[in-house]
Amino acid sequence: MSDDAVSPEEVRHVADLARVDLDDDEVDRFAGQFADILEYFETLDEVPEVDREADLANVMRPDEERPSLDSEEALRNAPETEDGYFKGPNVS
């Protein structure tokens, strides 16, 4: 994708990294659109390096125990649960 055109293989590679299945039509359509969009993003090359003043401070709180969502509530939206746990697919 470093040149102008974006190949279908590159779209598939990125989709794989992002864990999104795509069908062939989607891959072709995205390849065309990404070429246009990335070409537009290239104009960022003209931006000078800028001193960034980071005006940030950490926000901390005491590490004290306090009530949180109970597990029944936390599990309520899960498609499947088992023994009070989320049930996920096989890892491999």
Binding site: A15, V20, F30, F34, I37, L38
Partner: peptide, 8 residues
């Protein structure tokens, strides 16, 4: 999907 892929 477009934005997730372009962001990735």
């Amino acid at each position: 999907k477009r934005r997730i892929l372009l962001g990735t």
